[in-house]
Design a protein around this nucleic acid. Structure first.
Length: 565
RNA sequence: CGGGGCGUAGCGCAGUUUGGUAGCGCGCACGGUUCGGGACCGUGAGGUCGGAGGUUCGAAUCCUCUCGCCCCGACCA
């Protein structure tokens, strides 16, 4: 591609509305433009990268035996009505109506549509397993689109759906997808962790997120330094400490107007981790107490799970007073009448300090089992420095962006929609399904989050829009002719070259080359020409080197291949 | 949805407090000098000041309503 003919509207200044690195750089380097909140136009450069990512995904999905198809983006409401999601999806659904007054919506995901297709056209166990996927725009009216392509209202997604005869077979399909995803993320060149996550309302016991590690991610993760354990903090387990009773007697103490853990700990001269925090929640209408160690953060989702509750929220001040007989800040488990859920690490605190359920009073010498009882569980967020639940290692915390999510759906959709096949005995059975998503446009931005510096983007070679940027320096006719000839030769050899034939000063060309993030730069100049060499520089290196003009094509191909692995 | 911020030329901004009919830098076009890390000089094109209504002799500026965008939070198969 000749730069002089390309639409690459790079910006010298940072667009005001962009904050996140990928958002800033995609705009600045001329890869995309905004059309509305969470809606973007991909320019030629951006589309080239997207196509690279898609190609890798297609190759690996096809190699795994999945078949590509294309479902509609505009969907009649009847499909989502069948499973109740036309209503339950709520405001996130873009709804519309046709001229006859029928309801439609734009597809935010396609479980129902694919399930309908399969129930109509797949009838026998002999046709299974089946894995169908598409790469298509998804539409979700996000409550808050943000960070450019990282969370848009329209985004490109690869979604695959597997259909199997039973749970075992479904698990095999799931494992194949897990390995396929590993290859895809490896080939794109992303640093990621496969983490356990909350399956959400979709149900299904087995699920894993492919979290790309970044500074700016929306998700908080912990991963073990030693083994490959990794999890979203929402569901992360930690190595529990042994519970041994302490020996101090239970004793009430005055704590005038000391309510927070910090205040109480300071006042009594103890560390926050020597106290226990008593929080009151309303779980499915019942007021319950949750106990975590003073320095820990309670995890509502985990508490709800332990309590077996569908809905949970913090209790109001009035509810706290009613349940404990004391104002906020003095709740404690000793003598509490309702249900108590206790985090294992809180139970392990010997001779702890806790609220006394009386104004301006706490109790010391509190020990689990001896002084209070409750259901034990893991109900706090994991933190940096916690012990790994699987090995002797220590957990470290990260921020991540969810690039992919795989899970076994079971028969939720097939049963609700009556999607069945006949087994060898002629019996109708529901398909056991799995679904597997990759945020394709999100990955484009994620790759930048992980690969950039103060000068611009640093694309992994595998998804760079061009692998080489070729720039002649000066106006010398011989130099221009030599660069032109080299360009033709490289293109003929199948290399993807951005030829900077613009009548610009060297500094401008270099700055743009860095900003666009092309992995390799070739500079043709008068001096090198006489010596029969061309200047070579990698985007991620400060050094330039000279490589011989003769045999340059093979040399470049070799370097590009090396950089991919 | 709650809190905060912002809409003035393609991009970044000043001008708004104290009304007087719009300006700077970059970019763009043309001419000239330059040419290895975003050159310099000159000339020029380009703006319904987000929109509607109101106050006023006069509104980018004051008032009312409204639309849009960004950030934090809530939410997020």
């Amino acid at each position: 591609m000749r730069y002089s003919r390309a639409l690459i509207p790079s910006l010298r200044e940072v667009p005001k509305d962009a904050v996140t690195p990928s958002h800033i750089l995609l705009l600045r380097a001329g890869y995309m433009r905004m059309a509305g909140a969470g809606i973007y136009e991909l320019l030629p450069l951006g589309l080239r990268v997207l196509h690279k990512i898609e190609a890798i995904i297609r190759e690996e999905m096809n190699a795994a035996g999945a078949q590509e198809l294309l479902m509609p983006a505009l969907l009649p409401a009847e499909y989502f009505r069948e499973t109740g999601r036309f209503d339950s999806f709520g405001d996130a659904l873009f709804r519309l109506r046709d001229r006859r007054g029928n309801d439609y919506h734009l597809g935010p995901t396609h479980e129902e549509i694919i399930t309908d297709l399969v129930r109509r056209d797949v009838r026998s166990y002999k046709q299974l397993p089946l894995n169908l996927y598409q790469i298509q725009m998804k539409f979700r009216d996000e409550p808050r689109p943000r960070a450019g392509l990282l969370r848009g209202r329209e985004f490109l997604m690869k979604d695959a759906y597997s259909f199997d005869v039973d749970e075992d077979a479904a698990r095999k399909s799931y494992e194949i997808m897990r390995e396929t995803y590993r290859r895809i993320f490896d080939r794109i060149g992303l640093e990621y962790r496969i983490v356990a996550a909350d399956s959400g309302a979709m149900g299904g016991s087995t699920s894993a997120e492919f979290q790309v590690l970044t500074q700016t991610g929306e998700d908080r993760l912990v991963a073990c330094e030693k083994c490959d354990y990794a999890a979203n903090v929402e569901v992360a387990e930690v190595r529990a400490e042994a519970i041994e009773p302490g020996s101090a007697p239970l004793k009430e103490v005055e704590t005038p107007d000391k309510r927070s853990i910090e205040e109480v700990a300071e006042f009594l001269g103890v560390k926050p981790e020597e106290t226990i925090k008593s929080l009151l929640f309303v779980a499915d209408g019942e007021t319950v107490m949750a106990i975590v160690r003073g320095d820990h953060e309670a995890n509502e989702i985990a508490i709800a799970r332990l309590a077996g509750a569908n809905e949970i929220r913090l209790a109001t001040e009035d509810e706290i007073t009613e349940a404990t007989g004391a104002p906020v800040g003095f709740a404690g488990p000793v003598g509490f009448k309702g249900k108590i859920f206790v985090d294992r690490d809180a139970a392990a605190v010997k001779d702890a300090v806790a609220g006394a359920n009386q104004l301006d009073r706490h109790v010391t010498g509190v020990n689990f089992d001896r002084d209070y009882q409750g259901e034990l569980g893991s109900i706090r967020f994991a933190e940096e420095g916690d012990g790994c639940p699987r090995c002797e290692g220590t957990l470290r915390s990260y921020r991540g962006i969810e690039g992919g999510h795989i899970f076994i759906l079971g028969t939720h959709y097939s049963e609700n929609m009556g999607a069945t096949f006949l087994d060898p005995d002629g019996k109708a059975k529901p398909f056991v399904m799995g679904c597997y998503g990759i945020g394709v446009s999100r990955l484009l931005a994620t790759a930048i989050e992980q690969n950039h510096d103060e000068d611009g983007i640093r694309w992994p070679v595998s998804i760079a829009p061009f692998s080489i940027v070729l720039a002649p320096i000066g106006k010398n006719a011989e130099v221009l002719a030599a660069a032109e000839a080299l360009y033709e030769e490289l293109v003929a050899a199948g290399l993807e070259v951005l030829y900077d034939d613009r009548d610009e000063r060297p500094g401008v060309k270099f700055k743009d080359a860095d900003l666009l993030g092309i992995p390799f730069r070739l500079v043709v100049g008068g001096r090198g020409l006489e010596k029969g060499v061309v200047e070579f520089k990698a985007r991620d290196s400060k050094e330039t080197e000279e490589i011989a003009r003769d045999g340059i094509v093979e040399e470049l191909k070799r370097r590009i291949e090396n950089a991919k692995s």
